[in-house]
Nucleic acid binder design. Structure first.
Length: 270
DNA sequence: ATCCAGGAAGTCG
DNA sequence: CGACTTCATGGA
């Protein structure tokens, strides 16, 4: 074991398979039994979980933050367990953690995610990294805004992004030209959502995902096609996304983001 | 083959 | 404001 290894002995709140497959990250590969390769920005790590979990990298501090290791998920799950519809979801996805990811990477990733399948999103983003990301020797970094802004919509169309192609070139250019991705940190969830929606390809749901996965705003509640199914299970009816979001966010309060991940994961896999 | 996916933009009323 | 339509792509 190297000095930089992160060892997680108590894994009741850490399941790498669940963490990676719950839809918050698209750049990872299963490389073997209980073995994964994970990428973020220009960094890479390897996670092996067989009984205990070990995270191998050359930047321990980065990945400790990335995997949210200072956060107490036992307390979060205990607080959620007694709330409506949560028991089964928390038990099924008990090893989920919300990753601490990069704002620009989340912005681009979730623009691609709109009305798209997760396996396809992964393919598109990996092709984008190989085409535009810095060669790190064995893998490619996530592209910078500058690198992305140099390409026009035709390029993104050639990656298979379909009608989202112009959103990617336009949004990358907006960031290069000064759209401040640090601003949402000082904003309320509501303000920040509105702010991010000024970018092409970003609507309420994509903005909520960015706020949850990059800015750690846990009072948001991204509503997608799976959460719509959950809502119908709960109430027996359908409703506009806005209504669903308001209902669920008021039900789970400051723990909405966590609740959303447990519900999403459980619905998608069961 | 047909449906559908971590929805958003554009148009119309 | 809200409802309704359109938008590429390919996995299942």
């Amino acid at each position: 074991m190297a000095d930089n290894d992160i060892i997680i002995k108590d894994t009741k709140d850490f399941d790498i398979r669940q963490i990676l497959d719950c839809g918050q990250i698209f750049r990872y590969f299963r490389t073997g039994e209980s073995r994964y390769e994970v990428f973020s920005k220009d960094k890479r790590c390897e996670v092996v979980q067989d009984g205990i979990a070990v995270i191998k990298s050359d930047d321990k501090a980065y990945w400790e933050s990335f995997f949210d290791l200072d956060n107490d998920y036992t307390a979060i799950k205990n607080a959620l367990k007694d709330k409506p519809f949560m028991k089964e979801a928390v038990e099924y996805g008990g090893g989920i953690r919300i990753l601490n990811q990069d704002p620009f990477e989340m912005l681009i990733s979730f623009i691609v995610s709109a009305n798209n399948h997760i396996p396809r999103i992964k393919g598109i983003l990996n092709r984008m990294c190989e085409g535009l990301g810095k060669d790190m020797g064995g893998y490619h970094a996530f592209p910078t805004a500058e690198a992305m802004a140099e390409k026009d919509a035709d390029y993104y169309f050639s990656l298979g992004t379909g009608y989202r192609a112009p959103y990617l070139s336009e949004t990358a250019r907006a960031v290069v030209e000064g759209f401040d991705l640090e601003k949402p940190r000082q904003m309320s969830g509501k303000e920040a959502n509105k702010y991010l929606c000024k970018l092409k390809g970003v609507g309420p749901k994509v903005a909520d995902c960015i706020l949850l996965f990059a800015y750690r705003k846990s009072d948001v509640f991204p509503v997608d096609t799976w959460i719509r199914k959950v809502y119908t299970d709960m109430t027996g009816k359908t409703a506009p996304d806005k209504v669903i979001r308001r209902y669920l966010a008021s039900t789970y309060g400051d723990l909405s983001g966590y609740a959303q991940q447990y519900l999403f994961f459980n619905k998608r896999e069961n």
